[in-house]
Simulated scan of single mutants.
Amino acid sequence: MGLAEEIAAMRGGSGHSGRLLGEFRRTALLVPLSGGDDGGLMSGWQGGVRWIYAFTDEEALARFAVQRGAGVHEWDYLSILGARLVDAVIPTVDGPTGVAVDVADEGGSMLFPPVVGIVADAYAVDAGPDRAEAV
């Protein structure tokens, strides 16, 4: 099953969080570039968290572009594994950062928040000195 199917299963109540996260980490995601001089990744803010936009395929990215009023323009994007996004990119971003997958698809989107188990503990909002260690 691909990431879009794992998201659908999770949203439908029959998914498994471990399979979903594993598929997210293995999937080459399409991340649009911001178009600014910094060459950064396109992201948005919600609830005090920066969300990097990522898409499972070009069609999902195109739906997002249309929603943003840029459907006729080509967007530059980076193809990057989900694992590399959370393990190598997120540590370079200031503040809490997660990944929003297929955000233009109301019934097919999924957020991967900056929490333990998704991002490195040093960048997780729920990690801290008083967090109980799993036994």
Rank of each mutant, 00 (worst) to 15 (best):
G13Q: 04
I52Y: 01
I7F: 01
E106Q: 14
R68W: 06
A83V: 08
E74F: 14
A88M: 15
P91K: 02
R19V: 08
D37I: 13
G35V: 02
I80Q: 11
L41G: 04
M10C: 08
R50I: 00
D76L: 15
D121S: 13
R25G: 06
G39F: 11
G69I: 03
H73K: 15
V99M: 03
Q46M: 13
T97I: 02
R68N: 07
F24G: 00
A124Y: 00
G36I: 02
F55H: 07
G128R: 04
A60Y: 00
S109N: 11
I80T: 14
F112A: 00
G39A: 12
A28W: 11
Y77E: 07
F24T: 00
D102M: 04
L81N: 06
R84Q: 15
R25Q: 12
F112S: 00
E58A: 12
L30S: 09
A8E: 05
G47Q: 09
E58D: 11
G40M: 03
D121C: 07
L20K: 05
P96G: 01
I7H: 01
E6Q: 09
Q67C: 12
I52F: 01
R11N: 12
E133K: 13
G2W: 15
A134P: 08
A120R: 11
G44E: 11
R50L: 01
A88K: 14
I52H: 01
P91A: 01
V31W: 05
A124F: 00
R11G: 07
A120S: 11
A54Y: 00
L33F: 10
L85T: 02
P114I: 00
A88Q: 15
G40Y: 03
D57H: 11
V66G: 08
A70K: 12
G44T: 15
F64K: 06
R19T: 12
F112V: 00
D57R: 12
R26T: 06
S43N: 14
A124V: 00
A4S: 14
I118W: 01
E6T: 05
D126V: 04
